[in-house]
C-alpha cells in the first residue's frame, strides 16, 4: 500500500512543454488541479453572474453570497481603501477554497498542501503589501515597527520584535495553510491504512474516518478563510499603519 506521503507526489502528466531557465515545465497533477479549480470556480461564478436576475436562482445566490462575504470581509478589515484590492482578495479566497476542497475529493490532489505554492502566494502578498505601504506612506511606513505611544526607551526592544514579527508573516501565513492541509491528508491516509489492516474491526477507524473527513472539510473552508482574512489584515496594516 502507498505510504501516507505518496499522495503529495507531483508527477508529470505530459512530456515537458517548454523550459524556463533550466527547468522543464510539464503539465502535472498539481497543474491540473490548479487549472481545474480555476475552471470549476469560473464556470460556477460566471453562471451565477450571467443572468443578473432581480430574484436570484440557486447558482446566482451562491455567487452573490461569495461576493458579499468577501466584500464584507474587505470592507470590515481594510475599509473603503481596500475596494480596489477586492478582485484580488476575492480571487485569492476562491483559489484557496476550491484548491482545499477539491483536494478532499477521492483521487484528488491538494495543491495547497505544497509549501512551494503557499509560500509563493504568501511571499507575493507580503511583498505586494509592503510595496503598497511604502508607496503610500514613504518612510513613515517604518513607523509600523514601533507601536504608537510606546515610551521611546523601549524602542531597542520593540523594533526588533516588531520587525521579526513582520518578517515572519509570509512564513506563518504559508506554513499555516500548508501544514493544515498536509496533516489532514496524512491523517486521513493513515486512518485509511488502519481500515484495511484491521479487517472486520476496520469499521471503527472507518467511522472515525468519516468524522475526520467532515472535520477536514471544515478545515479546508476555514483555512481558505483564514488565509484570506490575514491577507486583508496585512493589507490594512500597510494602508493605514497603526
Amino acid at each position: 500500500m502507498a505510504g501516507p506521503l505518496e499522495q503529495f507526489t507531483i508527477h508529470n502528466v505530459t512530456d515537458p512543454l517548454f523550459t524556463i531557465g533550466n527547468h522543464p515545465i510539464a503539465v502535472t497533477n498539481s497543474a491540473i488541479f490548479m487549472l481545474g479549480a480555476v475552471a470549476i470556480s469560473s464556470v460556477l461564478l460566471l453562471a451565477g453572474a450571467g443572468k443578473g436576475a432581480m430574484i436570484p436562482g440557486r447558482v446566482q445566490a451562491l455567487a452573490e453570497i461569495f461576493y458579499e462575504f468577501i466584500g464584507n470581509m474587505v470592507r470590515d478589515n481594510v475599509g473603503s481603501a481596500g475596494r480596489k484590492y477586492f478582485p484580488f482578495i476575492f480571487s485569492l479566497f476562491i483559489f484557496t477554497l476550491f484548491g482545499n476542497v477539491l483536494g478532499l475529493m477521492p483521487y484528488g490532489f491538494t495543491f495547497t498542501s505544497h509549501i512551494a505554492v503557499t509560500f509563493f502566494m504568501a511571499a507575493s502578498i507580503f511583498l505586494a503589501v509592503t510595496l503598497i505601504g511604502l508607496f503610500k506612506h514613504g518612510l513613515r511606513f517604518f513607523s509600523l515597527f514601533f507601536p504608537h505611544g510606546a515610551p521611546l526607551f523601549t524602542a531597542p526592544i520593540l523594533i526588533p520584535i516588531e520587525l521579526v514579527s513582520y518578517l515572519s508573516r509570509p512564513i506563518s501565513l504559508s506554513v499555516r495553510l500548508f501544514a493544515n492541509m498536509t496533516v489532514g491528508h496524512v491523517l486521513l491516509k493513515v486512518l485509511a491504512g488502519f481500515v484495511v489492516a484491521l479487517g472486520i474491526f476496520g469499521a471503527v477507524p472507518l467511522a472515525v474516518l468519516v468524522a475526520i473527513t467532515a472535520l477536514e472539510l471544515l478545515v479546508a473552508v476555514l483555512q481558505a478563510y483564514i488565509f484570506t482574512i490575514l491577507s486583508c489584515i496585512y493589507l490594512n496594516d500597510a494602508l493605514h499603519l497603526h
Binding site: I10, T28, A31, L35, A37, A116, V117, M121
Partner: peptide
C-alpha cells in the same frame, strides 16, 4: 518540482 508548481500557480 518548485518551478513547475510556481509556473502553474501564476498561470492559473
Amino acid at each position: 518540482t518548485f518551478p513547475s508548481q510556481i509556473f502553474w500557480l501564476v498561470v492559473s
